[in-house]
């Protein structure tokens, strides 16, 4: 399996505070990689670096090399908007736009220049199907998305991200604001999606990492402590700190 993202010697500062220290990681294609670690360890920061959402934070400084396939994502030739089209994102709190369900999903394709109604219809339907929410919403596509339940909203946000046909889907604690049933639906969905997409998921919930991910990266105080197959990390961690964390001795 080839790697879709390669990070070499990456450091990140917010002002004077170094939030990520010397990160090296290779993320395999069409798999789920979970980022775990205690609050403030830098896992969300790392995630947001991959689609350059950290650019929006003033005073952020990044060194090192991040390659998506073979392109340096910080290179001047890279258009950040096309990069974000390739590397989609689902946020912690469901954040559908205050518009209809249809318009939410069609937002991305429309922004990228698709105006043909039939083509849009097709994209919207397939994105909603991929996000396993089509059957629930097909009769109320014109209704406002804010009227849906939290779990539905989050799946709509996933559909919205899928509609621009990304290669990678970054998920920042996508289930932390959801109830257990919605959570398990999102988890199942993630496992279906990895056949077509590469998923990188930040999670606070270690059971979730075990259930859904193929690879796990453990972050602590801005360092990447350990990265490997999820089974290995949870059954025979190499680092003492990983062991302490997954056995619940701190964090």
């Amino acid at each position: 399996m080839s790697n879709i993202i390669t990070v070499k010697d990456m450091n990140l500062w917010y002002g004077d505070h170094q939030a990520l220290k010397n990160i090296n990681i290779e993320i395999p294609e069409k798999s789920i990689t979970a980022l775990i670690g205690p609050s403030g360890c830098g896992k969300s920061t790392f995630l947001k670096t991959l689609n350059r959402m950290n650019d929006l934070v003033p005073s952020v400084k990044i060194t090192g090399d991040i390659r998506y396939n073979d392109t340096d994502i910080f290179s001047k030739e890279v258009d950040v908007n096309s990069l974000r089209k390739e590397i989609g994102m689902v946020f912690q709190k469901p954040n559908p736009f205050p518009m209809s369900i249809y318009d939410n999903v069609a937002y991305g394709p429309r922004t990228h220049g698709i105006t043909n109604k039939a083509q849009l219809d097709e994209i919207v339907e397939s994105a909603l199907r991929d996000a396993a929410i089509w059957d629930e919403v097909k009769d109320r596509l014109k209704k406002n998305a804010l009227g849906m339940s939290g779990g539905q909203q989050q799946r709509l946000c996933i559909a919205r991200a899928l509609a621009v046909q990304p290669k990678i889907l970054l998920m920042d604690e996508p289930t932390s604001a959801l109830d257990p049933i919605s959570t398990s639906r999102i988890e199942e969905l993630a496992m279906e999606l990895k056949e077509k997409y590469t998923i990188v998921m930040v999670t606070h919930n270690m059971q979730q990492a075990v259930r859904v991910s193929d690879y796990t990266a453990f972050f602590l105080l801005g360092e990447l402590v350990e990265f490997g197959k999820t089974d290995d990390i949870f059954s025979q961690p190499k680092d003492k700190r990983t062991e302490d964390y997954i056995t619940g001795r701190f964090g």
Partner: peptide, 14 residues
Amino acid sequence: PKEYEDASLALGAT
């Protein structure tokens, strides 16, 4: 809410 704008930017909108 900033979340709306983040979502749009993350979809590749300028």
